[in-house]
Design a protein around this nucleic acid. Sequence first.
DNA 1: GCCAACGTTGGC
DNA 2: GCCAACGTTGGC
Length: 139
Amino acid sequence: MSFWLFKSEPDAWSWDQQVAKGAAGEEWTGVRNYQARNNMRAMKPGDLGFFYHSNIGKEMVGIVEVIRESAPDSTTEDPRWDCVVIKAVKPLNRPVSLDEVKADPKLAEMALVKSTRLSVQPVTPEEWAYILKLSGTEA
DNA sequence: GCCAACGTTGGC
DNA sequence: GCCAACGTTGGC
């Protein structure tokens, strides 16, 4: 299994909205960047990810699960773009902020810091476990 | 609201 | 195939 990070501006799509979708989940539409799309294509159902609020909050707030592999994005006719479906699993006990990530040498290599504009990013198993621990959240 | 970073588009 | 122009993202 692999780990990921999904960025969203809470103004556009927030963690609370994701939670409200429940087990049905929500299509992660709107990605128009090849690298982000390729990351989604690499996902398998059962993979887990952090839900990150960009711009407002700038923190990881919850855990999501990939429940459908990448398929055509229903919001565009352009066949280049597709997306996975994710559902909320549970919130982090305590959000982990971008500032914390930047300040922590163990997380300094995260794509969140290195590739600020990439909206769907890989997270290493080490980073995953470490952030869960920081947030006081059970795996 | 500004601006840096960077991906994409289109003219040549 | 190069590169300038442009648009978007996201931190500050």
